[in-house]
């Protein structure tokens, strides 16, 4: 699949934003983000909302006819893209109400606040899940058609949110003990889940050119594609990255996305010096961002659409 920059930016940035909101509100419901006061929690939720919004706005850039984007809310019953749109739009009034409540009550969670908080939590989770399901629901792309895809989207969103929350906590001069440990656990879980995914897509297991063309007992090869230059189908689906490039980027994903942030957070948890801990806490999310951009690029570049079978690929 052609890796479209707007979609890569959208899924990484809005995933991190929603993750930050999920963790801030989730910990808030459990009695407040440890070490972070009301102003800190407000800042962290607002940061999350800003990131989510930036991502969602970027996602409209890949539309060829954005003037009809408002119609995307009307097929909730069948389309995951429509569900993502509905969840993300319902998220805004709820999170605004929660922020207002947090600001006016000073962090006390009454029944109303708890209800709104749970709603924010569920809608943010549902949005990220729906993003994953847009890809996982496509039977045409064997590398995406798996429960591993929404799992990865959710875990990476939570992990990047936790690393950001650690950054916010340190920026407010508080101890990152809880947020940092949460980020470590989530980084390990997300890294392992991604490793399972990389292992799982290693072996081609999709349909073959034989069932596509319909001669199942002999070898088939493409003689002529019937076109003198690439069509929309080739530009959209036939993107193929070199194996060496893929391996390099997988190393980038693991080093920048998981190992370095993990080591930085461990160092952060063991240091008390303020300027150093601030550097550590802010470089971790930056590195993770680079790692996740590479991860998302690979997610598209490694996906093989079955239409390639008709252009001569033996198996998808």
């Amino acid at each position: 699949m052609h890796p479209a920059l707007s979609v890569i930016f959208f899924t990484v940035v809005s995933g991190a934003g929603f993750g930050l909101v999920i963790l801030s509100v989730g910990l808030g419901l459990l009695g407040g983000v440890p070490g972070l006061g009301v102003s800190g929690t407000l800042t962290s939720i607002v940061t999350g909302v800003v990131l989510a919004t930036a991502g969602l706005l970027a996602s409209t850039l890949h539309l060829a006819n954005p003037k009809n984007a408002w119609r995307a809310f009307f097929r909730f019953r069948t389309s995951w893209l429509s569900r993502e749109a509905v969840f993300s739009v319902l998220f805004y009034p709820c999170v605004a109400l929660y922020l207002l409540g947090l600001w006016s009550t000073g962090g006390a969670h009454g029944a109303g606040m708890t209800l709104v908080g749970v709603l924010v939590l569920l809608l943010a989770l549902a949005t990220v899940f729906a993003t994953g399901m847009i890809y996982a629901s496509l039977r045409t792309i064997p590398q995406w058609n798996s429960p591993l895809v929404p799992t990865n989207y959710l875990l990476l969103s939570l992990a990047s949110g936790a690393v950001l929350l650690t950054g916010v906590t340190v920026a407010f001069g508080e101890s990152p003990a809880v947020a940092g440990r949460l980020a470590l656990v989530l980084l390990i879980t997300a890294g392992l889940a991604k490793a399972v995914y990389f292992f799982w897509i290693g072996k081609p297991q999709g349909p073959t050119i034989n069932t596509a063309v319909g001669a199942t007992r002999a070898r088939i090869k493409l003689l002529e594609s019937g076109q003198s230059s690439d069509s929309f189908l080739n530009r959209e689906f036939s993107y193929e990255a070199a194996a060496a490039r893929i391996n390099q980027l997988r190393i980038v994903v693991y080093v920048c996305g998981f190992i370095l942030p993990f080591l930085l957070l461990v160092a952060l948890l063991r240091t008390d010096a303020t300027p150093l801990s601030l550097t550590l806490a802010l470089s971790a999310p930056a590195l993770l961002g680079i790692g996740l951009l590479a991860e998302r690029w690979l997610f598209f570049a490694e996906a093989r659409h079955v239409v390639n079978l008709f252009y001569g690929r033996q198996q998808c």
């Binding site: 699949m1 890949h62 539309l63 060829a64 006819n65 954005p66 003037k67 009809n68 984007a69 119609r71 995307a72 389309s79 893209l81 847009i134 496509l138 039977r139 045409t140 792309i141 349909p207 069509s231 929309f232 189908l233 959209e236 689906f237 659409h305 079955v306 239409v307 008709f310």
Partner: peptide, 27 residues
């Protein structure tokens, strides 16, 4: 054509390459 927003998702969902985006019109 009056409702399409050109998101390409239907082309992704089609195994037969039957759908093509008209890049000039956007649908």
């Amino acid at each position: 054509q009056d409702k399409c927003m050109g998101c390409n998702l239907c082309a992704w969902a089609c195994p037969y390459g039957a759908r093509e985006l008209d890049e000039a019109v956007g649908t």
